[in-house]
Amino acid sequence: MSKFLLILHVLAAIVAVGPVTVAASRFPQEARRALADPDDPGAASTVRQLHRICVAYAWVGTAVPILGIATGASMGVLSSTWLTVSMMLTALAVVVLGGLIVPGQSAVVACLYAPKTDAAPLPGREATVRLAMLTGVFNLLWVTVTVLMVVRPGSTTGA
């Protein structure tokens, strides 16, 4: 059963985390292009689609920690330090994505689709720079978790 859960966990990580990291990474650049030319409906549409991908795959991504905990429990390694650190970093990645990146993207998308008035200026470059930085942090957290999953410091499994 452990191998089956591990396979599901790895597949969920590939299918869910991969697309959200790519979409979140592309969002700031596409948002800058759309904000530079707010009359280009194609640019705004691309930004909205990248945001939708981030939201959808964030929800799909909840399977990754759930399957990871189930796998760790079936393997009897839930108390391992490397796994505890991985779970904390995963929780931090969830906060960064769900609490900072997605709301920041939502604000940019809302501005792109809001009625154009002089009273409501579009967000500036600083909004996309902040999103790019947060996405870099999010991606770095997942890289660290992946390294911990492969290296497993202190593990007795011989990896």
Rank of each mutant, 00 (worst) to 15 (best):
S2W: 10
K3V: 15
F4N: 12
L5M: 05
I7F: 13
H9W: 09
V10L: 11
A12R: 08
A12F: 07
A13K: 05
A13L: 10
V20G: 02
T21C: 14
V22W: 11
V22Q: 06
V22C: 05
A23F: 09
A24H: 06
S25T: 15
F27H: 03
P28K: 02
E30A: 13
R32M: 13
A34I: 06
A36T: 03
A36P: 00
D37I: 00
P38L: 04
D39P: 01
D40P: 01
D40W: 04
P41C: 04
A43E: 11
A43M: 07
A43V: 00
T46Y: 01
R48H: 10
R48G: 03
L50K: 01
H51M: 12
R52M: 11
C54P: 06
V55F: 11
Y57Q: 07
A58S: 14
W59Y: 14
A63N: 06
L67C: 05
G68A: 01
G68K: 13
I69D: 09
A70H: 00
T71W: 12
T71M: 14
M75E: 15
V77L: 04
L78P: 05
L78E: 11
S86V: 04
S86Q: 07
T90I: 07
L92F: 08
L92N: 06
L92W: 01
V94W: 13
V96A: 07
G98S: 05
L100V: 10
I101C: 09
V102G: 02
P103A: 05
G104V: 03
G104M: 08
A107W: 01
V109R: 01
A110W: 02
C111Q: 13
Y113H: 13
Y113R: 14
A119D: 15
L122S: 07
G124D: 10
R125E: 14
R130A: 12
L131V: 09
M133N: 14
L134N: 04
G136Q: 01
F138D: 02
L140P: 02
L141W: 09
T144V: 14
T144R: 06
V147Q: 10
L148S: 04
R152T: 08
G154S: 04
T156V: 07
T156I: 02
